[in-house]
Amino acid sequence: MSKIRILAVEDDHEVGRLITMTLKANHYVYEWSKTGNDALSVFSLFQPEVILLDLGLPDMDGIEVIKQVRAINQTPIIVISAHSEEEDKISALDEGADDYLVKPFSVNEMLARIRVALRRRQVVADSAAQQRSYVNGALKIDFLGRTAYLNAKPLALTETNYKLLCLLAANTAKVLTHGYLMRVLWQDKPLDDTTSLRVAIAGLRKALEPTANSPKYIQTHIGVGYSFIQH
């Protein structure tokens, strides 16, 4: 099995070294770019499978890098942001980044996110192959029958909740911002009135996670959005 290629874009020397050492220790193949322009040229040659992208770059806005990458393909991008760049983080996700890490982060956290992103690549490929259904642990969605099953039992979902479930499932392991979810599901409501979204999430959670001990599907990213966990 060929080694997995990861592109790290980070201008801070110490953080960059920490990231690359961790990648190396975990047997990933990596390239380290310190500027946005360098990252973009390396990206086309190196063809990474995951990109770790710091938003504060010396030569260009990290969001610009995301735009240019997304113009070419869907390579998972994990954004690394400092605390002060909270708004940037959300716009990065809206522009197509998959996930985010906030400094200071632990290396274990970073590795976990990379694994999730890689798995997501797999899921996307799978669902592209068969668009009729979606399976994630005990959850199964039958797109044609418009029904979701948990442990083979059909779930009673409202129209909105079903749509929300499909949207989350289609983007498994990707962080969807409140704004994105609002835009797709409630076009007529203002973006910051997230009440309907909260109600729908609560309803969906009640169906998918009936007891306190049942496996969690919906992950909260407070102040940012939600993501669907791959089991």
């Binding site: 910051d192 009135d193 609560a202 992950q219 909260t220 990213h221």
Partner: peptide, 12 residues
Amino acid sequence: RRPELVEDIFQA
């Protein structure tokens, strides 16, 4: 101030 689910806050 935004609407926030208690469950979300606890989970986070």
